[in-house]
Design a protein around this nucleic acid. Sequence first.
DNA 1: ATGGCAGAAATATTCTGA
Length: 258
Amino acid sequence: MKIATWNVNSLKVRQQHVIDWLETSQTDVLCLQELKLTDDKFPRAELAEKGYRSWYAGQKTYNGVGILVREGLNVDESTIVRNIPGFEDPQQRVIAATIDGVRIISAYFPNGQAPGTDKFAYKLRWLEALHDWLVSELAQYPKLALLGDYNIAPEDRDVHDPKAWEGQNLVSPEERAEFVRLVGLGLTDAFRKFEHPEKIYSWWDYRMMAFRRNAGLRIDHILLSGPLAAACTSCDVDKVPRKWEQPSDHAPVVAQLS
DNA sequence: ATGGCAGAAATATTCTGA
């Protein structure tokens, strides 16, 4: 099973990119973030025509997450979960589904704006709620993958200029500690299971020619529970769609499970 | 310290993103 995550920054604008990328990558399960559209605007029929079924939790203007699943895979409809159970939140940031026995979670972590702000406090609250929910999810589903835009660069090697970013949002010690706490549940950062060249990132600012300068951050991740980490044979960032006309500022991250 | 780019809502300008 080939699984992937991609913050598309508006599915309306990036619909054709998604379709083109699915066709070339032959991905089985694609987790999407920042749909920026309501459920009635989701291009369900267009994706079905290309051989993918969709589940989503949409929202006007902001947030919104989805999971696209290739025809032929078994989706247990009764296990679909939207949002973190017990965590009251009007923002649509989580959807989970069980696909061929694998628990797949598509998550759009809060940005946080800056340490010390209300939005940062919300980010930390949200991370705690996610952590606590994952405890029960892992008990129920030993094969679990948490894919998404984490809005956290876990280590300095995930940051193009660690000195300039020190202490700032996306890299601050508090949020990195929350990432470590997630890993502490027995999850593995699939990307770091393998050797890679230096300076691999998943997001680049639209401004200041950041992509051409490779001034990026690695903030999109795939965390895998033990059995899936053992079955994972590769994990890479696909920079190609970031080079397309009118791209998302994020690139897809892909993992192959044997 | 700020803005720069992009998308959405709205239809000028503001909010949010990371």
